[in-house]
């Protein structure tokens, strides 16, 4: 579905992504793990065209999308849920979702599914998104990404700062979502990653340093320590 090869990204004077090679298999939920500053968010933003890749190829279903403008990438069916509950606070829940529906109308069956996954969306349908709680804002951000069928979902730290009960709700939602679409999910919470991931890529210093099956990484504590623990130690 998505393959990055030798992707480099510069942000001003900083060389953030230094040759990222990453494969996101179709129909799977791929976890992108790594310490803070490893380049996970920059990878998502580069795929989305929000940062321009200075070198490398980003292949989406056979087409090179590196260098494409963000709206063009979105129109190819890629939805991006940035971290920090990226909703439009001045619009209602309904208007937030309508913005993401390109036909300017809702598919009732998808809407029913969103309400089943996140009942709060129905309850606060005509409320201003800015008045929702943190968890509800995150639910809205994810609902906006799935209000239409998408080829690929890029989701950045969806459980950050959320209460455990809401995290459990999110995990259930992602379990359902991965049945219908391909997902690349950045996550700091290893327990969430273990619960959800089919495949995994671990980043460090702007490169992917490990990729494989999530189940293998979850079983291998030594590998976890080496990839996630060692990397932390090396930067202390």
């Amino acid at each position: 579905m998505l393959a990055l090869s030798g992707v480099n990204t510069h942000i001003n004077l900083y060389h953030i992504l230094q040759g990222v090679d990453l494969v996101v298999p179709r129909g799977e939920l791929t976890m992108l793990l790594g310490r803070n500053g490893a380049g996970k968010t920059t990878t998502l933003r580069t795929i989305m065209g929000l940062w321009r890749a200075s070198a490398g190829r980003i292949d989406l279903g056979g087409a090179d999308i590196a260098g494409m403008a963000t709206p063009s990438v979105a129109q190819l069916g890629v939805a991006y849920v940035p971290e920090n509950m990226s909703i439009f606070a001045g619009l209602t829940v309904r208007e937030n979702l309508l913005l993401a529906a390109r036909e300017r109308s809702f598919d009732e069956s998808r809407l029913a599914r969103i309400f089943k996954l996140f009942p709060a969306m129905q309850k606060f349908w005509n409320s201003l998104a800015g008045n929702l709680s943190g968890g509800q804002k995150q639910m809205l951000a994810i609902s906006r990404a799935i209000v239409e069928p998408r080829r690929l979902l890029l989701i950045d730290e969806p459980t950050k700062g959320l209460a455990p009960a809401i995290i459990a709700n999110m995990i259930e939602a992602f379990r359902e979502l991965k049945l219908e679409t391909t997902i690349l999910l950045v996550e700091q919470n290893f327990n969430v990653a273990r619960e959800l991931g089919d495949s995994v890529a671990v980043m460090d210093s702007g490169r992917v340093v490990h990729s494989g099956r999530m189940a293998d990484l979850a079983r291998d504590e030594a590998l976890q320590t080496r990839l996630l623990g060692l990397s932390l130690d090396s930067h202390q």
Partner: peptide, 10 residues
Amino acid sequence: ENEFRAEALG
């Protein structure tokens, strides 16, 4: 509210 988010929606 946020130009980048609007662009990310297409």
